[in-house]
Amino acid sequence: MAESITDDRPRVRGRVVVAFVLTRLGGALFVLWAVATLTFFALRLIPGDPALAILGGPGSQASPEALEAVRREYGLDQPLFVQYLTQLWRLMMGDLGRSYSLNMDVAPLVGVQLGGTMQLAFLSLALAWLLALGLATWSTRGGKIARSIGSGLEIVAAALPHFWLATVLILLFSIWLGVLPPISTPGIAGLVLPVLTLAIPLAGFLGQVMRESLLTALESPFVLSARARGESERGVRLVHAIRHAALPAISLSGWAFGSLISGAVVVETIFARPGLGRTLLNAVTERDVPVVVGVVMIVAVVYILMTLLTDVASRLADPRLRAA
């Protein structure tokens, strides 16, 4: 009987893995469909004629014949639902379309801007983690006063708007001190202010989660057992408590990365930094529907991949999830 149960374990484990993969794949496809659908209909609610936007906007003084020709060329004369199905089919085939305003394929345009935004988001996420972990560790070691100060700093940081923080950082480091450029320039110096603008609010949010989890871990039985075995306080924190405290923050890193990309719209505009955020803002202003859809779909794919990576990281860091 025991041998039969042992023989069934690989089969059961394989079924669990297949079910997990299919569930994740189905969820990813649903997210992409929902993003494409919401983006399509939201853009159609913007006042104005897309054909007129293609020809250069109201100032172009396009003739009715030219407008009609553009509508036929881009399928804008078709019913709205037909346009929607056509766009879904193109996206399924990997065709992001052609930019109205730039007259070039969207895929290479988005590919060029993707690297700058990903660099900004990854650096901001790493710095937010370091700031949050450092503040949580200090506040839990310094007693009640340090905890109160740390909690206040985390709440204030999490509530800071990106546009306000960017303005303050420019005034402080660029105008008053003159040590950093006010706009993004090639090199490390041009990254400092944009990264700080995105990292500080996120660090405040992650810091709150880490601090509460760290306090819970320090009072847990496994920490008390480690102390009873004679481990030093530093060893207890580094080996046991901090690892436990990082688990909630790891789970939230996928969401955090998505918030960083959305924040990049503001940051890249303020610091005149090329990237997906600035490209998206310009495309919305010009009603460049293919560019908007392309950027949003690429961001959705990146978000799905980051969510999957954080799930894997959570399982690697937490033996209970691996066992489950």
Rank of each mutant, 00 (worst) to 15 (best):
S253V: 07
V284M: 06
G57F: 03
R11L: 13
R234V: 15
V35S: 05
Y84N: 04
L130Y: 03
A324S: 15
A313T: 10
R11P: 07
E268N: 00
L120K: 00
G115N: 08
P194K: 01
T6Q: 14
F271V: 09
H240V: 13
T140S: 14
S148M: 14
V35W: 04
M1R: 15
L88Y: 03
L305H: 02
I170E: 00
P50N: 04
V17T: 12
L180A: 07
L191D: 05
S101E: 09
V21A: 10
S220L: 07
A189K: 09
V293G: 01
A62L: 11
A157H: 09
M306H: 03
Q83S: 04
L305V: 15
V70M: 10
T216D: 14
L202K: 04
P221I: 08
V266I: 15
G294W: 01
A203G: 08
H244K: 13
S213L: 04
L102S: 13
D288F: 02
A324N: 14
G56I: 09
G26E: 06
S101I: 11
V296Y: 01
F257R: 03
A66V: 08
T216W: 02
R322K: 14
V267H: 01
S124Q: 01
L25P: 01
V112P: 00
V17L: 15
R227M: 10
G134H: 06
A28S: 13
V168L: 15
A256V: 11
L29H: 03
T23F: 05
S124V: 03
F40A: 06
P64F: 09
P186Y: 04
L123A: 15
A128W: 00
I175M: 10
E3F: 12
L153P: 01
G75V: 11
G230V: 04
L308N: 05
G254T: 10
A66K: 11
V292N: 01
R71W: 08
G142E: 10
A245W: 07
L120D: 06
P186T: 07
I155G: 06
L160G: 11
P186K: 01
S184D: 07
R273K: 11
A241N: 08
A300C: 06
Q119E: 15
L109Y: 02
L260Q: 06
T39A: 14
V296G: 00
S174P: 01
L169R: 02
A283C: 04
A132R: 02
E73Y: 06
L165C: 09
L191C: 01
A226H: 05
L52E: 15
D311E: 14
F20C: 04
E286S: 15
L85V: 14
G59N: 12
G187R: 02
W255V: 12
E268F: 00
R227H: 12
G26H: 03
S101W: 05
T285Q: 14
H244T: 15
T6Y: 12
S220R: 05
F257P: 03
G26F: 02
G152I: 06
R90T: 07
L281W: 11
R71Q: 10
L114I: 07
G57A: 07
F41R: 02
G207I: 07
G56C: 08
R72E: 14
L215D: 11
V12S: 10
F163S: 13
A300P: 00
G254A: 08
R320D: 10
A159T: 13
F257D: 09
S213D: 12
T279V: 13
R147S: 14
A317D: 08
G134E: 09
G27Y: 02
W89T: 13
